[in-house]
């Protein structure tokens, strides 16, 4: 039952639409700016509509080496993709296994392992950034994909989420499987993984976005532009010394940098919402 008051409903819709519009505005303005030439941008106030250059800026950006870097935008996007996918897949794989061991097995030092893993929830990479950098340098993993990916996998968010889900699996299902002659590996493959499909999809969305959007870590460990990510390259384009900021390129890069994760969230919204909200419980 609701108070169905037409006026109030109308106001609500108006406010919501205004909210959506306001939140979209920065992106829209970035997009329109990316379709103007640099001289246009610096002679007029920020344009509200698409300019005459169209998508030329994008074409140029994707085909030529990026300002001040010895590498192309496609390579940067590819690096971001590798990093995001690597983090998402890597986290999911190690978490599926670790959470499985913690929930479905009883073994000595189980509680200790649990705490060793879950204490990592407390300290994000930003806090221990300097020593982590040294460790990665000692392992000769600077300027490499493994250096970009592995340290960011060392957190238990996915393990925690999967543990919560595993705990909701009725114990009788495990017992039935044991009676049916399924050992631990077969139970994992035949029953647990098929049942966690939605949760794994949700995890993938969350971790892909997390990986794609990383900033501080890739900024630190990549000096070779061949391993730089698109998000990090933005700062390089902004720091031009005394020259004017090439906003048409910066906004175009921003649009390109937010494209893939936004696409992922919109396509897999259902899983994402479920994954986020379940993680809280």
């Amino acid at each position: 039952m609701r108070y169905q008051r037409l006026g109030l409903d109308l106001v609500s819709h108006l406010l919501l639409a205004a909210g959506c519009g306001l939140f979209f505005l920065p992106v829209w303005l970035a997009f329109t700016a990316s379709t103007h030439s640099m001289s246009d941008l610096y002679t007029h106030i920020a344009p509200l509509w698409v300019g005459d250059v169209g998508l030329d800026n994008y074409a140029q950006l994707l085909s030529e080496p990026v300002n001040g870097l010895k590498t192309g935008m496609l390579r940067l996007l590819f690096n971001s993709l590798v990093m995001a996918t690597g983090i998402a897949v890597g986290k999911i794989v190690i978490s599926v296994l670790a959470a499985y061991a913690i929930v479905f097995f009883r073994f000595p030092f189980r509680r200790l392992c649990f705490w060793l893993i879950f204490i990592t929830l407390m300290l994000p990479v930003e806090v221990r950034i300097l020593p982590t950098y040294e460790v990665v340098a000692n392992l000769h993993m600077l300027d490499s994909y493994s250096g970009l990916i592995l340290p960011l996998i060392a957190s238990a968010t996915a393990t925690f989420l999967l543990r919560q889900f595993y705990l909701t699996i009725p114990p009788e299902l495990v017992e039935a499987a044991r009676i049916d002659g399924a050992g631990p590996w077969r139970f994992l493959k035949d029953i647990l993984l098929p049942l966690s499909k939605t949760n794994l999809a949700a995890l993938f969305v969350i971790m892909f976005i997390y990986g794609w959007n990383q900033y501080l870590w890739p900024l630190l460990i990549t000096t070779d532009a061949n391993y730089m990510t698109v998000v990090v390259s933005l700062k390089r384009m902004l720091t031009t010394g005394d020259a004017l900021v090439p906003w048409q390129d910066v906004t175009a890069t921003a649009i390109l940098a937010m494209g893939p994760p936004v696409l992922v969230i919109l396509l897999l919204q259902r899983y994402f919402v479920k994954g986020l909200v379940d993680a809280e419980k």
């Binding site: 920065p26 959007n213 910066v250 937010m258 994760p261 919204q269 919402v273």
Partner: peptide, 22 residues
């Protein structure tokens, strides 16, 4: 929800750039 959810996917650095431009 669809129209309000997507900024979550925008990197903090990219969000900074968008507002810097404004």
């Amino acid at each position: 929800k669809t129209f309000l959810i997507w900024p979550y996917a925008v990197a903090p650095a990219v969000a900074g750039v968008l507002w810097l431009f404004l």
